[in-house]
């Protein structure tokens, strides 16, 4: 039984530990990721942690060529774009995540509907080291 408070801070701690965690409503069973304080279906605040299956399907994506400063620091730029997307999850929800294992410089090769599995990418040095939620093609 996971006792950490339901919060974005806890959610990010889990990511650092290689866990993709959402919250599940105790009353109606609806699952949310990132976790929510209140259930949007029934209004309950009885939420508990729920480990996501880590599977899904690519629903939308973009390949970023003009990157914000924190991604430029990680080495991304016009010549080295990165892909980020939206994943439809079997739990009946969606999540935004970095997309690995695709060629971001060839966006036409990336297909919506591709089965995906979760991945955790560690980037940055020292105090800036962080784990990002990512998905990659399942096969």
């Amino acid at each position: 039984m996971e006792e950490r408070p339901i919060s974005d801070i806890s959610y990010r701690q889990f990511l650092e530990e290689g866990k993709f965690m959402g919250s599940k409503c105790d009353k109606c069973g609806k699952v949310y990721v990132p976790p929510r304080h209140f259930c949007m279906e029934c209004g309950s605040s009885d939420m508990r942690w729920h480990e996501m299956k880590g599977e899904g399907e690519l629903a939308a994506f973009t390949c970023v060529f003009v990157a914000p400063p924190y991604m430029v620091e990680l080495g991304y730029n016009r010549k080295n774009p990165y892909c980020t997307g939206v994943i439809n999850l079997p739990e009946g929800t969606r999540m935004v995540a970095r997309i690995e294992g695709v060629d971001a410089s060839k966006p036409e090769s990336i297909k919506i509907g591709t089965p995906m599995k979760v991945d955790f990418i560690k980037q940055g040095e020292g105090e800036k080291a962080r784990t990002f939620l990512a998905f990659r093609p399942a096969s």
Binding site: V64, T84, L133
Partner: peptide, 10 residues
Amino acid sequence: AGYTFPGVFG
């Protein structure tokens, strides 16, 4: 997830 403004619309 590394989105920019144009990224979300993309």
